[in-house]
Design a protein around this nucleic acid. Structure first.
Length: 129
DNA sequence: ACTCTGACGAACC
DNA sequence: TGGTTCGCCAGAG
């Protein structure tokens, strides 16, 4: 049992559960709400910004519950790191996510965002304190 | 208790 | 550079 292992245990068995049970999801939604129209971000970027870079899956999981939130969450502006619309099947209709994006001026080709690199909105950069 | 499956992503062949 | 593996953790069964 080395010190690195102990750190990991603290992080993943104490800190993360606290965040998850308290307000990790709400933080995710709050970040997502800051994504401007016509821009997109990624699951990993949000996770990283919130200090748990390795739990991008949890951000995706949070998005799954985003639709039932009172306040609107622009879940369609969150895609994976390659700019692919991997979450489109969770929008009622598979084409809905693409339509929502196109309505904001984003072009989508083969479930992939055109010019993703320039449209990418990084919370770590934009939401600096 | 245990396995499996993901709206993920980095590291490694 | 493209496929595979691995770490991650919440739910479902």
């Amino acid at each position: 049992m080395n010190s690195l292992k102990i750190l990991k245990i603290i992080k993943y068995y104490i800190l993360l559960p606290l965040m998850l049970t308290k307000d990790f999801f709400h933080l995710v939604y709050e970040v997502a709400r800051h994504v401007p129209k016509g821009r997109v971000t990624s699951y990993g970027a949000i996770g990283k910004y919130l200090g748990s870079g390795k739990s991008a899956r949890m951000v995706g999981w949070a998005m799954n519950a985003a639709h039932s939130q009172k306040k609107f969450v622009p879940a369609h502006r969150v895609v994976n790191r390659n700019g692919e619309l991997t979450g489109k099947h969770h929008f009622g209709h598979p084409k809905l996510m693409q339509k929502l994006l196109e309505r904001e001026g984003i072009k989508v080709k083969n479930d992939k965002i055109v010019n993703f690199k320039n449209l990418f909105w990084d919370p770590a950069e934009e939401l600096k304190p």
